[in-house]
Design a protein around this nucleic acid. Structure first.
Lengths: 330, 330
DNA sequence: AAAGGCCGTCGAAGCGCTTCGATGATGGGG
DNA sequence: CCCCATCATCGAAGCGCTTCGACGGCCTTT
């Protein structure tokens, strides 16, 4: 049962257990040894009263807020479901460490980082979808706020970064197509805008893909909307009639690509092969279902949170963590 | 420029401006009148030092955390992009009111609500995707924590609820199909599980749909996966060969439905009409693009936050707010 | 049997802020 | 010309917690 009225304080708990407030604090934090009998009495009082320490008071006294921030990108081109998986994965993992998660958007930019750092509202932060040249990175370095980045900026010196090994993902796709006997293959990527922004992952996929498949591969940026996708695919097939394999790294486009291929008389899974880099749903929603390499959003989020927790505890973490891609064949 | 070292306090600002700490506080909060000259000097010092009040200290002293919680459902059947839009809409609006947003998941359940209420870590909360019988509602009432629900529980007495007018949405779809001259029509809904859970919105859509279209309509639950969708559509067409109109209230199924209809020889947009209740992308991603009624997630989130802010300020808000559905014809 | 250690507990000092009451300084009315 | 509002500002008292040093007991150790 949760307590009845508002404002159960540590003093109330102490009174009910017949001890000093500091003793209650030590029982709860375990920072000094307390006799089992006393501890029991305290815990009982805590339960009886439904006591939860006042977060503000605790943060003030201990200089630990018990909250981490998560800054989400809200630019277009971002795939919302993946972000959501990130967010929920992070919250779930954070709660395991008794931390809460504050949600911020990238709109707040560097100033937002300064704000949360200075107000001590969070102990650390996770920055998602970091770009190659990201203005927040410099601020972050200056603030010295413990943080973990998801993605890799150009200069990762002194930062902790976590990401899917996109280069390997590109390689895996190229290999898959090669195994299926595809000679000429192509990578259909995100929209021009994404490349223009020099988004790290897009470039790394390209490198992995090209690096593995040599001269017989090419990379085409690709817009998201139905009509443009159809056109792009048509042009691609026209430009290289010998094409028999395609990797698609553009989630919203997958459905349209399949249509365009069907229109062009390609029988996917038979004389033509397609592999997707993206969430399972996307690869499953089309017919035939496609093999795919997914962005393991939850795993990345968990890893990021775990690393951040270690940093907050003053422990070592690797500067760079690359999660291996898994190809799911359907 | 943000300040150099850590821990700029109000005392530092006061010293630099040559005033008392309390004066700085009053300048910042505007709760007492301060001469323009003094105020200027204070603001200058604040800017020079990059001062941001310590959130914990502020919350302790003022009993206002400046943070609201948002509890997201993470059950399956929930559509992730929509949740994300909610979350980002809420954060954006909250920041306009100088509030931060703490993210919680529904896994924490009622205990989570007790926790955040007792620890005073947030001032209020927004509960998403409330079900007809929701265990959190009772706790919420008991805690008396200011809150706004998105969705309607069975007993909304004394609660503030916001939602899309799903009944109207069902009606709008039925009307659209009627206008297109469809006689026999059907609503393809969410999976059985969603109905079994008695999710409010699913039921309300059904009511609106049936209420408008009389005896010539029917409602079929529908699973999400490709194969089951195809089967369901086939059965539906077999059961009612005269069917010429379909409303689909199941986002992941839309693509498969279109396929199944094509397989059955129906020419959508010509001798058969389909309307979607769901996000724009879903209706746009298929061919032909479909008319749709979207869940205006951002609007709902903004409204919810705005209402919550008013409640925190002790102002009145309507108990129940229904947002009108908009049909987008493509 | 006295001295030293350790264990379990307590009290008090602050963390940085808001807010209340008090205090000069100023100015208008009698 | 004095008194009393009014205005701008100050000082001090907490908010609820953590943490540091202190202090009795009790058990070893000599």
């Amino acid at each position: 049962m949760a307590g009845p009225g508002r404002g159960v304080t540590i003093a109330d708990v102490a009174a009910r257990a017949g001890v000093a407030a500091s003793t209650v604090s030590y029982v709860l934090s375990g920072k000094r040894s307390i006799s089992p009998e006393t501890a029991d009495r305290v815990m009982q009082a805590v339960a009886d009263l439904g006591y939860h320490p006042h977060a503000g008071a605790r943060s003030l006294a201990s200089r630990r807020a018990g909250v981490i921030a998560m800054m989400l990108p809200l630019r277009d081109g971002m795939h919302l479901p993946v972000l959501m998986q990130f967010a929920s994965g992070a919250v779930t993992e954070a709660r395991r460490h008794d931390q809460d998660v504050l949600l911020m958007t990238a709109d707040e930019g560097p100033a937002g980082l300064s704000r949360v750092a200075a107000s001590a509202i969070v102990d650390g932060l996770i920055l998602m979808d970091v770009e190659v040249r990201d203005p927040r990175v410099e601020t972050l370095r200056r603030l010295g706020l413990p943080s973990v980045l998801i993605g890799f900026p150009a200069d990762a010196e002194g930062l902790t970064c976590v990401d899917l090994d996109f280069t390997a993902a590109g390689r895996v796709c190229a290999d898959y197509l090669a195994e299926r006997g595809c000679g000429d293959i192509a990578l259909l990527g995100a929209s021009e805008a994404v490349y223009a922004r020099r988004t790290g992952f897009a470039e790394r996929v390209r490198e992995g893909f090209l690096g593995r498949s040599g001269a017989r591969a090419e990379v085409w940026p690709c817009p998201d909307e139905a009509v443009s996708v159809q056109r792009t695919v048509k042009e691609l097939l026209a430009a290289n009639p010998a094409l028999t394999g395609l990797a698609v790294h553009n989630e919203p486009a997958v459905g349209h690509v399949m249509h365009a291929l069907a229109d062009a008389g390609k029988r996917v899974g038979e004389d033509f092969h397609v592999v997707v880099i993206g969430p399972d749903e996307v690869a499953e929603r089309v017919h035939p279902q496609l093999p795919s390499v997914l962005v393991p959003a939850e795993t990345l989020a968990e890893t990021a949170v775990r690393h951040l927790m270690r940093k907050l505890d003053g422990l070592e973490v690797p500067d760079s963590t690359l999660v291996e891609p898994q190809l799911t064949v359907r």
